[in-house]
Design a protein around this nucleic acid. Structure first.
Lengths: 343, 343
DNA sequence: CAGCTATCGGTAAACGTTTACGGATGTCCC
DNA sequence: GGGACATCCGTAAACGTTTACCGATAGCTG
């Protein structure tokens, strides 16, 4: 009752040794009659090999872990949707970890690789501390990092240049004649937050626009926090001068943009007539919103796929040099900046 | 180089037997000095217990699988978001399976439970065939099914009554004065497709409205297919009479509703003035769309959480009778039926 | 001081596989 | 008929744990 049939059960029923059973089940050359007996016994018993025992012996689990901050984020979701089939096709199962963007949790996941319950890990760290980098380099299984990692870290890496991505969007807004471009950022102590914050300032300079800190608000990379940041921004501008003093809003990701959209609408501002809005990541929601949100695609799906392939390659070929794959950002123009004219 | 330290390595370094190492690491009563030596050796070596070996011995993997049609579906996503933390808190890892709504794939997952790589499974079958039910009942690990399952199937089960849910929405449309209510369904050979199709017809009768098959189109539960179904419906109505002949559109889920919204807009029809639209599932996207879509919440998040708790309970208490948990549908009224008046 | 008990920790078996090694059997040839 | 060789398969060890079962040592008691 407790356990199902094992190769011992089969061996007994077929009247052969467990070695023969194993050989037959693994397709190693065996006499015709033995094969027949073993397969018959296996079928009658409904035998299914125990993957734990197999893993113990073979030192491979056929499992791969994916660690990200939060599955609710459509960016990670888009990645999983690509990663899963690639792994499945290669015979790997997917183990999911949500880290809540907590560095401690991420380091725990890296350490847990020592338990050998997976053959490799794909991770998206949001905050890259020295400790995290160390944990990555001493990890007991191959790791692929999606996102930026300090120059010279010996790890497979899939990245994109969110700086130039943000610049694409800002140039678009500028070309539309917008000159007072606000910015809603996520936490500046995260890698994307820092990069996008720096890119905003750099791009303003490149466009010859002044940097006005009153046009910048920081929240988190979610819709609700984006809405709150937008409210704070509008409140401050109203207190400052009365006039909106804002003709465009660059958002560090699409969720923030969606939150901002709600707030602008509630404040009676028209998008894009009064304020043009642009986001980043090009998630489904951005296209589904009304007005549809202009966004910078950072190739989430492609990055996920590339990461999976990089890991599979590494699993077959453990000692090749670390490789980095880079994706170019692409601007997707929608109604939130140009209005309905495109329809 | 190959493997990390094992209890053998520790035993050698600490000068004790592997049994003592194991006892210390598991907190069993041991002499003070032995504890000290073992812990020191373990620390110096950076020992991490091998979970595969542990699982082989203990017959538990501390992993749970979740199988659904497609992670891209926001309903399943909402469930995962609840399931994951519950499992994590109880010390379980989450293994993800996408089945593409393929019964064969689902049965494969059930069979694979014999491999004992997980302690239990939460699944959402879309098509419940006799073979699937058999596979569920003979599964080698505890299973929790989210969704309907034939009366009397001995399995833990979390369900909701999508029939009465659809009825809620239809009554709402009727109360708004809509009388020509179209219906966009998903595949009728799926459990939800069948239930919702039947509920549409039953509710029409209950409301005293005639059933007009020309108002019904069938597609799939996705946005694109929903849009295509809406197009076919509009085209047929146009060919039939010229007038829209439609003042409301009930959609079997929110993704279909979103697709329909696009098509209606493109056809120059105003929502809800010309055609009121309602969906089901109450996914994030429904609230984010413009106009926001009135939807029937089937408690996705709650169902996910309940399923995880049911499974954990079963894992501790293997022989209690199967239990069924039911959630009541709830109507969430938004602009797509009542317009902006609520804002 | 003998004997009993309690405490501690070592030996070995077990979990379910895979696989190196060698023994048994059969075939072929001289 | 006996030796060389190939073929087939059984025995046993190994993967890294946990744990039942002792044996040894020490501490008490009478």
């Amino acid at each position: 009752m407790s356990g199902g049939p094992t190769i011992n059960t089969i061996a007994a029923r077929a009247g052969v040794s467990i070695a023969s059973v194993s050989r037959v089940l693994n397709g190693l050359p065996t006499r015709e009659e033995t094969v027949r007996k073993v397969l018959a016994a296996a079928n009658e018993l409904g035998y299914v090999p125990n993957s734990v025992a197999r893993s113990l012996k073979s030192r491979r689990t056929n499992q791969v872990a994916f660690a990200m901050a939060d599955i609710g984020n459509p960016v990670y979701l888009a990645m999983i949707r690509e990663i899963q089939p690639v792994l499945k096709a290669a015979g790997y199962r997917l183990v999911l970890h949500s880290t809540d963007a907590d560095v401690g949790d991420e380091i725990d996941v890296l350490r847990s690789l020592g338990e050998r319950y997976v053959d490799g890990l794909i991770m998206i760290p949001l905050r890259v501390t020295a400790e995290l980098v160390t944990a990555i380099t001493v990890a007991r299984a191959p790791v692929v990092v999606i996102g930026s990692v300090p120059e010279g870290t010996a790890v497979d890496n899939v990245r994109t240049d969110s700086r130039s991505g943000l610049r694409l969007a800002m140039e678009h807004l500028h070309a539309l004649g917008r000159r007072r471009i606000g910015f809603l950022n996520g936490p500046p102590d995260t890698v994307p937050g820092a990069a996008r914050g720096a890119a905003y300032i750099a791009t303003l300079a490149a466009l010859g626009l002044p940097y006005d800190p009153r046009l910048v608000e920081v929240g988190d990379f979610y819709r609700l926090e984006g809405a709150q940041a937008a409210e704070r921004l509008l409140a401050r501008l109203a207190a400052d001068g009365g006039a909106p003093g804002l003709d465009a809003l660059m958002c560090a990701n699409d969720l923030i943009a969606l939150g901002a959209l709600d707030v602008l609408r509630r404040a009676g501002l028209r998008v894009p007539e009064d304020v043009a809005v642009a986001g980043m990541d090009d998630v489904d929601l951005a296209a589904a919103a009304w007005p549809a949100v202009t966004s910078v695609s950072l190739g989430s799906a492609e990055r996920g796929k590339a990461a999976a392939e990089l890991l599979l390659d590494r699993l077959e070929n453990g000692d090749r040099a670390p490789r980095a794959v880079t994706f170019e950002p692409r601007l997707v123009i929608r109604a939130s900046t140009v209005g309905e004219e495109t329809r």
